[in-house]
């Protein structure tokens, strides 16, 4: 199974600057034999966020679980193209007037995750639910992809 974390969104100048800094730091680490260990984030992590995702399988279904805390239900988009399930959306800050931030760790903006399921699924019966910040997509396997019991007669 493959997962795809590509991020097709426009990169802001600021995030590009951070990425250049991270790349520079990695180059310095390499030259200095990584004297300072791995601190900070890998290059590319400043431009957008990528929510963690699990895939479960049982006899009849695949279940894809994505941690998406703080999203509006209508801002989550789930689509299926053959065996590729794509979850995308956008998170906007819960801003109230008069608030001044002094520590921001959370990620906002667009995200997109695509996962290729290991077998065909039946697109007409896919169900998605969102509760407590977790998106759960249940994808029933196509009949052809289900395991079959084959009776073997021993002579």
């Amino acid at each position: 199974m493959e997962t795809n974390r590509y991020q097709p969104h426009q990169q802001s100048e600021l995030s590009a600057a951070f990425d250049r800094f991270v790349t520079l730091r990695e180059e310095m680490d390499r030259l200095l034999g990584s004297a300072f260990g791995s601190i900070g984030r890998p290059a590319g992590s400043f431009k957008s966020w990528s929510p963690p995702l699990d895939v479960y399988e049982d006899k009849d279904n695949f279940t894809v679980v994505v941690d998406l805390p703080g999203l509006k239900r209508e801002k989550i988009d789930v689509s299926l193209r053959e065996q590729n399930l794509t979850v995308s959306g956008e998170r906007t800050p819960e801003e109230n007037p008069g608030e001044q931030g002094f520590r921001a760790e959370r990620f906002y903006g667009s995200f997109q995750r695509t996962v290729k399921l290991p077998a065909q699924v039946d697109p007409s019966t896919v169900k998605a639910s969102y509760q407590d910040g977790i998106l759960k997509v249940v994808l029933p396997k196509a009949e052809a992809a289900k395991p079959k019991q084959i009776a073997v007669s021993v002579n």
Partner: peptide, 22 residues
């Protein structure tokens, strides 16, 4: 959890990401 901290004249507001917690 990842947390944003904000301040208003009246309050300090923390927002923590806790997916799966009710």
């Amino acid at each position: 959890p990842l947390v944003d901290v904000q301040s208003t004249p009246e309050n300090i507001v923390l927002r923590a990401e806790m997916a799966g917690v009710d």
